[in-house]
């Protein structure tokens, strides 16, 4: 077991995840089509094509700077897509093709689409001016139009799920990093997302707090069919929860496959050297 992973709840290694709906006929939850992303003159992603099936959990691995964060941020519409298309449930997210032209969707439409997507950040990004409970009910009430009573009820259930029932009225700055991150997970789940994006959500935590957060994520993986796209350096965790691992290098998919194959039997030298550097 890698030294970085110290989860008290690590399940047996036989916890091979149940299969998502990868049948060819199912509409992908996420589809990248000829995606290109550049920051000014630097092209980070080029001609990127891949799909993620509904309920599938995909881990992106690869050296720093290989574009993993950029991919997640594109799905969350935090970065402008400079070329190609991203589809969610088969529907365009930010750009669509109309009469052979690539046109941007209205912001409001894109915002409707993103209600299906949640994201948890490395730095938590809780709203410090609100209590934990207010953080969680903010979007359900003001985006989905859930009644406040209902939202509070759901928020409390979520707080129980992440083990923070007693922190509902606390302000985020009073919590440890691990607690803040669990609130951030609850906040994302409060929107009942179909897709959850997790970008190195334990990287900013003290090692002893990592286990709790991973435990919560394992629980979500086991008890829901939320599609997950995650970036993590916790290789044991990635192995346990993902259906598929994609190894990125220089903005390209170098190789992909089930975790066992990628971790035990990588076909590329670069994957091997990357894995030996993180394990």
């Amino acid at each position: 077991m890698p030294p970085t992973e110290n989860t008290p709840d690590t399940p047996s290694s036989s916890a091979t995840p149940s299969g998502p709906n990868t049948s060819a006929s199912a509409t992908p939850a996420i589809e990248f089509k000829d995606v290109e992303k550049s920051f000014g003159p630097t092209t980070v992603l080029k001609n990127l094509n891949f799909t993620v099936a509904p309920g599938e959990r995909v881990t992106l691995i690869g050296p720093s700077g290989s574009g993993k964060t950029t991919i997640l941020r594109l799905v969350m519409t935090l970065e402008e897509l400079t070329g190609g298309y991203i589809f969610v449930d088969g529907e365009p997210l930010t750009f669509e093709e109309r009469d052979g032209k690539r046109v941007e969707l209205p912001k409001k439409r894109t915002r409707e689409m993103t209600t299906r997507i949640g994201m948890v950040f490395q730095q938590f990004n809780l709203f410090p001016n609100m209590t934990v409970l207010e953080n969680i009910i903010e979007a359900p009430v003001h985006v989905l139009g859930t009644s406040k009573d209902e939202a509070v009820k759901e928020a409390k259930a979520l707080l129980a799920k992440v083990g923070l029932s007693d922190k509902a009225d606390a302000h985020p700055t009073r919590l440890s990093g691990g607690q803040q991150q669990r609130v951030a997970i609850a906040r994302a789940l409060a929107m009942s997302p179909e897709i959850l994006l997790l970008d190195e959500v334990t990287s900013a935590l003290d090692p002893e707090l990592v286990g709790d957060v991973l435990g919560v994520l394992r629980d979500i993986a086991e008890t829901t069919d939320i599609t997950m796209l995650l970036v993590t350096h916790e290789m044991q965790f990635a192995r346990d929860v993902s259906h598929r691992v994609m190894m990125f290098d220089g903005g390209q998919v170098l190789e992909e496959g089930p975790p066992d194959q990628i971790f035990n039997n990588p076909s590329h030298e670069r994957t091997k050297s990357f894995l030996s550097s993180v394990l």
Binding site: M119, L126, F127, E138, H142
Partner: peptide, 22 residues
């Protein structure tokens, strides 16, 4: 911090609400 705006986007909050509440 930019992270606050990003969290608001991730929650699909409309711009006016993002401004007044966050």
């Amino acid at each position: 911090p930019p992270g606050q705006f990003e969290a608001a986007t991730a929650l699909s909050l409309p711009p006016v609400r993002t401004f007044t509440a966050i």
